[in-house]
Design a binder for these strands. Structure first.
Lengths: 193, 193
DNA sequence: TGTACATCAGTGAACGCGCGTTCACTGATGTAC
DNA sequence: TGTACATCAGTGAACGCGCGTTCACTGATGTAC
């Protein structure tokens, strides 16, 4: 192909980050640079014209996935016209669905990247972004101003249940328990309040 | 060293499995055979005299970790002389401690191996053992016969919260949020009932 | 607007390295007499 | 109980392979005139 226009190069770069953010969520960050570039329609050699290292891409792809997530619940909130509990309910329904369990690539980065982030160093940009994403998510799940009993920490506990159920149901997929986990967590999160 | 007594060989084998079960929980199953054997005090060449493949060891080490876990809450139950809620409370306290967060090697295999199991094939022995371990754990966390409101699924939801909090707090370690997660989940699990 | 040339995104071969696994070899252990 | 020999757990070098990364090369793009 040789040289390519600046616009094309920028689009290629964007496509690599987007592909990475999906593949990393689906298979983990140990996906190889070669596989990644092939999935993005390029050869592996081009990688280092755009990124300093694989680590740098992991950080950038993580940030990309979280930005997408934030955009998603902004849309959700808007869709329910600010009715916070209805937006939360819709998110919980989608989050604990079999479709979400089976589509990690397009799914929640908090769930998909937890272990890769935990195994990466504490000083990594990916962890900073991840932690911020967890805070945002917990805030979204927190009880609204109008409801009582909200201690702030409640959003965090609800996130633990939501997140834990998804990760556990993925690990037990193939057994009926996998679906039972989604159901049990859904019941606990929707009936309690 | 050359040949070694049958008793010695068996002890070596046991040591490799035990070392693997700890290292896999701490760093994931991609720990190399060479590192593993070095940690067990042997050279990598000896590995294939005892195990068919690395996969086989992963399966065996997973089973080993779960057997240890089951033994642990059997002891816990006995210690509290069958007082189920007291045993549960003690387990929750320990589970959501900073010590447990920082010592994955000796900690809960449900939390430490979730992603490795999810990424391994659905037909793997490790997943079968894992799923069974989740069921046992949920049964331990279920409300006792004497308490009301137990629908069976409740033990599963509580496990999701417990497990989710530990995994999330490990991923966010380094931020104050990490400890807040442990506290929030602890409050939710102990006050609710 | 047209020409001449420098730039640089993308290519594909190559690098050193660590992986899982194999293998010829060692020599104390276990066994047969 | 003592001797002769087969066994086999452990050693360390070597295997093919895929990894992250580098590099000489290409040729359309972008720029200077």
């Amino acid at each position: 192909m040789s040289r390519v226009s600046q616009a094309q190069a920028e689009e290629n770069r964007r496509r690599v980050v987007d592909t990475a953010s999906r593949l990393f969520r689906e298979q983990g960050t140990q996906v190889s640079v070669a596989d990644l570039m092939k999935a993005a329609g390029l050869t592996h050699g081009a990688f280092y014209k755009q990124f300093a290292s694989k680590e740098a891409l992991v950080d950038e792809a993580t940030a990309h996935a979280f930005a997408e997530l934030a955009r998603r619940y902004a849309v959700e909130l808007q869709q329910y016209d600010g009715r916070r509990d209805a937006a939360q309910r819709a998110l919980i329904d989608a989050y604990l669905s079999v479709e979400h369990r089976d589509d990690a690539a397009d799914g929640c980065p908090v769930a998909a990247l937890a272990v890769d982030v935990a195994r990466g160093g504490e000083d990594r940009e990916a962890r900073r972004v991840y932690t911020e994403g967890v805070l945002d998510f917990a805030a979204f799940l927190a009880p609204g101003e109008d409801e009582e009993g909200g201690e702030g920490g409640d959003g965090i506990a609800r996130l633990c249940t939501l997140f834990g159920a998804l990760v556990l149901s993925r690990a037990t997929k193939g057994s009926p328990l996998s679906e039972e986990i989604l159901t049990a967590a859904h019941a606990a999160l929707t009936q309690a309040r």
